[in-house]
């Protein structure tokens, strides 16, 4: 759906915002694009929607070069970059009407999309009177207006309360079921984990990880930590260091926290410890959350 090949970009000389960035977003996926502030997420999204012109045919959307087929591509893309920008003295309806006129869409679409995002009751209110959540909903309604095939959403869950967040999540899943492709950047990793089918992690303008959530989950299973309470911490530590590949070992008054690379090692560890007369009082396995994996990948790279 979206292919970026070796994209370099800088706002200022000698300051690379994107470095040799390659990204492949599969059609029909919910692709979560995560990274710290200033990592290059918004800049990448701006390239994909043509806000930053790219002259070397390094971006392809729907199998066509964005450089040569911009109009055709952008017609099928719904965009929400950074915070929604609407005219404060106009009603929600008028704000959407402007975009209907720009895109030559029938005005009936407004009612339809606002009903979908749950904003139809507040449509005649002025935008300046909207709450943060309602502003985000209107932004989402705007992206739905043209019924696009690709949604590019930058931090779409900002300011949404839990109810709206769930509704929003369901809406994205509904769009996904209809075969739409969704590219969303987010800081809210637990939320991402719930809906994304694919993920890309970016740091300093380079992609650190890219793949399906399944591949990430298998990586998570490999990267586990174990919390143990044993009878002899010293003996346990030296045994584990000798016989197993220990990633991390913290000892605190009989408690141990060890990192293991493969979950298959857990029964072996237990077996070896009991064989050496070490009593195990407590054993907790702890899978790393997406947040921890994200922190690991950005800190190790």
């Amino acid at each position: 759906m979206v292919e970026i090949r070796n994209l370099n970009f800088s706002y200022k000389r000698k300051q690379h915002t994107l470095r040799d960035l390659s990204l492949s977003i599969p059609a029909g996926s919910i692709f979560a694009f995560v990274g710290e502030n200033g990592a290059g997420k918004s800049t990448t999204l701006k390239h994909i929607v043509g806000l930053i012109p790219e002259l070397n045919h390094k971006i392809e959307v729907f199998g066509k070069s964005l450089r040569t087929h911009r109009k055709e591509i952008v017609q099928k893309v719904g965009v929400m970059i950074e915070s929604p920008s609407f005219y404060p003295f106009l009603s929600g309806y008028d704000n959407l009407k402007i975009h209907c006129l720009y895109r030559k869409l029938p005005l009936e679409r407004i009612e339809k999309v606002t009903r979908k995002v749950g904003l139809s009751e507040h449509l005649r209110k002025k935008y300046k009177a909207y709450s943060m959540g309602m502003k985000q909903q209107l932004g989402l309604a705007l992206t739905l207006l043209a019924d696009p095939d690709l949604y590019v959403l930058d931090e779409p869950m900002n300011g949404l309360d839990p109810t709206r967040r769930i509704a929003f999540r369901n809406l994205l899943l509904d769009l996904h079921k209809k075969g739409k492709t969704i590219l969303l950047s987010s800081h809210h990793l637990p939320e991402v984990e719930l809906i994304a089918t694919d993920i890309g992690i970016i740091k300093n303008g380079s992609i650190l990880f890219q793949g399906s959530m399944e591949s990430l989950r298998s990586l998570k299973q490999k990267n586990q930590s174990l919390h143990m309470e044993v009878s002899d911490v010293g003996q346990t530590t030296s045994l584990l260091e000798k016989e197993f590949e220990i990633l991390l070992a913290n000892t605190k008054s009989g408690k141990l926290e060890i990192g293991i690379k493969d979950r298959e090692n857990i029964p072996l560890i237990v077996q070896r410890l009991t064989a050496n007369g070490i009593a195990i009082y407590k054993l907790n396995g702890n899978e790393k959350s997406l947040e921890e994996l994200f922190m690991d990948s950005i800190s190790t790279n």
């Binding site: 701006k46 929607v49 043509g50 806000l51 911009r70 109009k71 055709e72 952008v74 017609q75 893309v77 965009v79 970059i81 950074e82 920008s85 609407f86 005219y87 404060p88 975009h99 720009y102 895109r103 705007l142």
Partner: peptide, 18 residues
């Protein structure tokens, strides 16, 4: 200034209009 004030250029410039 309608566009400058709310930075709506970033929305308008993503439209298919030339």
């Amino acid at each position: 200034n309608q566009e400058h004030r709310i930075d709506s250029w970033k929305v308008i410039l993503t439209l298919p209009n030339p």
